[in-house]
Design a protein around this nucleic acid. Structure first.
Lengths: 202, 202
DNA sequence: ACATAAAATGAACATTGTTCAAGATATAAA
DNA sequence: TTTATATCTTGAACAATGTTCATTTTATGT
């Protein structure tokens, strides 16, 4: 019981749990090192024995969020066989996730990226995983595309949906009703699908 | 010379200038009240006689940025008569602005919006101005849309382009080459225009 | 049981935005 | 012009924060 590495793992886990809980309830904004260590039942300095700094802890949590989103996507895609429907479901699921886990989702993008410390490789890999969910259906819609072209287009489509979701949940922008947003996002995807169909027919 | 209100105006102007300069060179991240007041040649506390707090000063600057973007749009639209071309130009101009004035553009979205203090009305109005630039050409593409529908769709299209630009300039995401991005954004707009054409034909 | 290496501790530090009592200054009346 | 008053300006002090590090505690191997 309680070997050195076990204790360190347990500390890490408790810190991640405490920080996640704080982010979910109060957002990244209100996250304080002292609150986290209090909740985790350890000293302030202990955080810096488990992680290089507070940011590293947040990156860890953001990685979990990415995987969580991917899981939601996977789940939502089950039992949707038609390609267009899959694209619609992906967009709707992203919006639903952002809405349901707003603070946590927001933390993904609120965390400042500083040039000096590069984003970890595993983080970028988790991201690529998400994009692959879009590449799947997209491959059927653009069969002539290379894998690289598919990745770029998937990135573009994700970015577009992400922008719509972001601006809609951002109080800095003129808001629209929730139902209006749902319908508008679906129409927007419909527009893109029509565009793809049109291009295919040319 | 130097009446009370004149001095206050001059102080405001110097603070805005100093802060803008700091944002342009070091980003919102590195903005410090002490640096601004040093540059402006006033005491630290003077900032709080000219603005309620640092945030209010930043909001002022962000407002100027919005108007600056709108001006770029207006300029870019001159001599572009065809509707599709106008949409392409608007998207390209937004990307170009974000690239050329990255730190300043970024400040628009990095500033935290807190529930307690609502965004000023004039800020929302500046935003609406920008959206109207999109409504113009869009009205010709969707003549059956009501004004409200047009505003919603314009917001959606702006958000989509904004998302693409944002993710492309965000080092947190997998990057693509600059030329690739330019071409991809234009293709994306093309896709949307095709979608609109297709819908119109139905 | 003991020695040693590792980890946990929390007081202290540096850096912030913000406040406010004290001093400086513009304005208007005499 | 002089003077009284209202206003503005000042910067030291404050509170909140992430991070460090000498000291104490704890686990490991002999």
């Amino acid at each position: 019981m309680a070997s050195r590495s076990e204790k360190k793992d347990s500390l890490k886990k408790r810190l991640i749990e405490a920080a996640t809980s704080r982010i979910v309830s109060g957002g990244l904004e209100g996250l304080r090192a002292r609150d986290i260590t209090n909740d985790a039942g350890c000293a302030l300095g202990a955080l810096y024995t488990a992680f290089p700094d507070l940011e590293a802890l947040i990156v860890e949590i953001n990685g979990q969020t990415l995987r969580d989103i991917d899981q939601s996507m996977q789940l939502a895609l089950e039992n949707v066989s038609d390609i267009a429907g899959q694209m619609q479901v992906l967009a709707a699921t992203y919006l639903a996730y952002a809405r349901t886990h707003e603070k946590r989702w927001r933390a993904l993008f609120e965390l400042k990226v500083i040039d000096s410390k590069p984003v970890p490789d595993w983080y970028m890999a988790d991201q690529a995983l998400l994009l692959m969910r879009i590449v799947g259906p997209l491959r059927h819609l653009q069969p002539e595309f290379s894998e690289e072209q598919l990745m770029i287009r998937a990135r573009t489509l994700f970015a577009a949906v992400h922008g719509i979701v972001t601006i809609s949940l951002d109080r800095r922008f003129v808001g629209i009703k929730a139902e209006t947003l749902d319908a508008e996002l679906q129409r927007f995807i419909g527009l893109l699908l029509d565009g793809l169909k049109f291009e295919g027919a040319k």
